[in-house]
């Protein structure tokens, strides 16, 4: 069931996930489209998440946006009143960030390792960090140890921060502790995106990858073909998996396996390395007397790709 509408206010609104913003020219969503999008969300009972560009919006846009309860996803250059902040520059991440912010950082695995100090400083100031890995598609089995090491480094920093009594969530490591069922992105099932061209897309990635890949528009409404194939119960590898924190990105699925309901080897291995690191972190916290209200015990797994055992589930 759809619960959220994401509205990209401009073609240059920054990415908050795996995809790259491929459009460089500013194009603000038409005011009529913005108002129609808001009306659509009100009638469909959807929560709206506005993704802001890195410049100030005209007054009439601000007025329209403020006419409805919403979440502001903003680039760090426009951080005022942001509910979620997208960080673009490692040097600036540490300044002027309020403790209760949720931040998103997009980075390659190498960038994360190279900027570990800044990452730790950032985590010590905020309540939640979502890390979006930008190079999932080029991950290979040769990278398993280095990603394990990266997660271990971040986990050490998370541990050190939590140990001081501060509350901190990092999607890759702590989400799994609080989940007892899949909590995937669910693009096209729970959320849909309205792009600046007034058309709907499963998520922003589809818009930036191919603007023809729409799933309806404001005039004719949503037309999501094969929507059942976006659901967890129609994903043979994922529906029995317990790496609950995995994004299960249907855009990456389509890009790497050509079918949106099938995750790539990379996505599975990455999610399971995160799963195992969550397990290590939870054990370390418990061992050292830090109380975590985890929902279930995480058991480490040797098999990193559930595809290899999927036939046992059939």
């Amino acid at each position: 069931m759809l619960t959220h509408l994401i509205i990209l206010l401009d073609d240059t609104s920054p990415s908050y996930c795996h995809y790259d913003v491929t459009l460089k020219e500013r194009r603000l969503i038409g005011l009529d489209d913005l108002k129609s999008g808001i009306l659509f969300a009100m009638k469909e009972n959807l929560n709206i998440q506005f993704v802001y560009p890195s410049y100030e919006l005209p007054e009439e846009y601000v007025e329209a946006i403020e006419s409805i309860d919403h979440t502001k996803i903003k680039p760090d250059s426009q951080s005022d009143e942001a509910d979620v902040l997208i960080l673009s520059d490692w040097k600036e991440v540490i300044t002027d960030i309020a403790y209760n912010s949720t931040c998103i950082i997009r980075a390659s695995r190498t960038e994360l390792l190279d900027n570990r100090k800044q990452l730790k400083a950032l985590m010590s100031k905020i309540s939640r960090l979502n890390i979006a890995i930008t190079d999932v598609d080029i991950f290979s089995d040769n990278d398993i140890d280095s990603y394990k090491n990266l997660l271990s480094c971040i986990a050490d920093d998370v541990y050190a921060i939590i140990k001081t009594g501060k509350s901190l969530q990092v999607n890759l490591l702590t989400d799994l502790m609080m989940l007892d069922e899949m909590n995937n992105c669910n693009a096209g099932v729970n959320n849909i995106t309205l792009a600046p061209n007034g058309r709907f897309y499963l998520c922003p990635a589809f818009y930036y990858n191919n603007s023809q890949d729409e799933v309806g528009d404001l005039r004719t409404g949503l037309k999501i073909k094969n929507q059942q194939l976006l659901r967890l119960d129609h994903a043979p590898i994922c529906r029995n998996c317990d790496a609950f924190q995995c994004k299960r990105c249907i855009w990456l699925n389509g890009k790497l396996t050509l079918d949106r309901n099938t995750p790539s080897h990379q996505q599975c291995v990455i999610a399971h390395l995160e799963r195992n690191s969550s397990c290590d972190l939870l054990e370390k916290l418990n061992r050292n007397g830090v109380k975590i209200n985890n929902t279930h015990k995480i058991i480490k797994k040797q098999e990193l790709d559930p595809f290899n055992i999927v036939n046992r589930w059939k």
Binding site: P236, I237, T257, L258, N261, T262, P263, H265, F307
Partner: peptide, 11 residues
């Protein structure tokens, strides 16, 4: 092998 995964998990 990624492009074979959808086939090998079909039911």
């Amino acid at each position: 092998q990624n492009k074979l995964r959808p086939f090998l998990t079909l039911d």
